[in-house]
Design a protein around this nucleic acid. Structure first.
Lengths: 213, 213
DNA sequence: TCATCAAGTTAGCGTCTCTAACATATGTTA
DNA sequence: TAACATATGTTAGAGACGCTAACTTGATGA
C-alpha cells in the first residue's frame, strides 16, 4: 500500500501556537486536534465535548491524541490557550487606532471582551465558567494577569495616576467585574433577552464614565 | 432476610421541595439523591459529577434514580432548583429588616447573590456557568425572572420611578451585570485574589451609588 | 386476601477515557 | 546506505459511566 495519507502542506507552519513539532504522519495532528476541539466545544458545548468525537473529526484513532496531550483536560486547555491568543491579538489591533489616554481605549477593551464571549461562547465558558477544578493551568492564569495588566495601564492613564495605585486597581477591578458579568449574561441565551433592549456601546460608555469619574 | 433497610424517618417530610412522593422503600430517595447530587457537585465540581457516585452515596443501585428523574441532567436541575429556593429565602430574610426604598436593600441583594456564589460555587456554576446547552429548564428561567423582578422593584423605589421604566431596567441590568461578574470572579480561585484587597461591602455600596445617581 | 402499581434490583448495551503493546515513518549517524 | 533511535500512529482492551429492559418487592386499598 503506497502512502495515501493526507498532507497538511508541511511548510505552512506559521502558527506561533504550535510548539515546534510538525508534519510527521498526519501533517500536524496536534493543531488538527486543537481545531477539532475548538469546533466541537462551540457546537456541542464544553461539557458535551468528547475526545472520541475529536478523533473522528481529525480522522485518527482514539488513542492518537495521547501522543500529544496528557489527557482530555489538556486538550481543552490547549484550545483555550489558542483562543486567548487570538483574543489578545484582536485587543491589540483594536487599541492601535485609538489615542493614548483616551477612555475609548477602555471601552474598546470591553467591547472585545464581550465580542469574544459572543463569538466563542464555548471557549469563553471553558476559560471562565466552572471548569476551574479541572482546568488549572498556570499559562491560563498568566494570560489573565496579562490582560488585566493592560486594562490597569489604561485605567491609570485615564485617571492620570502614576501607575497601579490602589485606586487604579479598584476602578479596574470594578470595570472588569462589570464587563465580565455582562459577557456572561449576553452570551447566555436564557439571560441575553434582558439586555437586548440596550445598545452595547452605550452601556459600556455609560459604565466607563461612571467608574472613571 | 428480614428488612434491614435504613429508614429516613418517614414522617419527617417537611421539605416543600419534594413533589409529594414519599416514604416507600427507601424513605425518600428523591430527596436523598438531590442532596447527594448537591454534595458531589460541590465536592468534585459540576462537570465531574456522576450519577453512579450519587447512587453509591445514597446506597441504591445505579438504576434507581431513573424512577425519579428522566436523566442525569434532570437530577442536576433538581439540585439547582433546590439551591435557588434556599437562596430566595435568604434574600427575603435579608430584606426584612431594611426599610423600603432604602438603597441598602439593593446592596443586601447583591451581598446575598455573592454569598451564594461563594458558599455554593458548584450550584452557582451549574446555574450560570456554561451548562446552558444541557440545562434549559423553564423553571430555572422562571426563578431568574423572579429574582430580577425583585431587583427592579427595589431600583424603581430608589430612583423614585413609578415602575419598571426603561431607565429602571437599564440601571437594574447594569447592577446585575456587575454583581454577576463580581460573583464569578470572587468564587473562582484563580481570579479571586485580584479582588481580595477590597472590602466587599465597600465595593457594593460604591457601585450602587454610582449606578443609582 | 389479593390485585395493583410504585419503587427498587440485576443484567447488559453502547460509549467514553486512557493504557499497553505493537507497527511504522523519519532523520541521524556510523 | 544500512541500522538505529525516536516520534507518531494503530489495535485491543480494562474500567467507569449513562441509560434501558425485565424482573422483584412491598405498601395500599377494594
Amino acid at each position: 500500500m503506497t502512502s495515501t495519507k493526507k498532507i497538511h502542506s508541511p511548510g505552512s507552519n506559521t502558527d506561533r501556537q504550535s510548539v515546534g513539532k510538525r508534519a510527521y504522519h498526519h501533517g500536524d495532528l496536534r493543531s488538527a486536534l486543537i481545531e477539532a476541539t475548538r469546533q466541537l466545544v462551540e457546537e456541542k458545548g464544553p461539557d458535551s465535548f468528547s475526545v472520541s468525537e475529536a478523533c473522528r473529526r481529525a480522522g485518527v484513532s482514539t488513542a492518537a491524541p495521547y501522543k500529544h496531550f496528557k489527557d482530555k483536560t489538556e486538550m481543552l486547555v490547549a484550545a483555550v490557550l489558542e483562543g486567548m491568543g487570538r483574543h489578545q491579538n484582536k485587543v491589540r489591533a483594536a487599541l492601535e487606532g485609538i489615542p493614548e489616554g483616551s477612555p475609548e481605549r477602555i471601552t474598546a477593551i470591553g467591547i472585545e471582551y464581550i465580542a469574544f464571549a459572543l463569538n466563542e461562547p464555548g471557549i469563553f465558558r471553558l476559560k471562565f465558567g466552572g471548569f476551574t477544578d479541572r482546568i488549572a493551568d498556570p499559562r491560563l492564569e498568566e494570560g489573565g494577569q496579562q490582560s488585566f495588566g493592560i486594562l490597569l495601564t489604561e485605567v491609570a492613564k485615564c485617571l492620570g495616576e502614576p501607575g497601579s495605585t490602589e485606586e487604579v486597581r479598584r476602578r479596574g477591578f470594578l470595570l472588569w467585574s462589570f464587563v465580565h458579568g455582562l459577557s456572561f449574561i449576553l452570551h447566555e441565551k436564557g439571560l441575553a433577552e434582558k439586555g437586548s433592549e440596550f445598545d452595547l456601546h452605550d452601556l459600556l460608555e455609560d459604565v466607563s464614565e461612571r467608574m472613571l469619574s
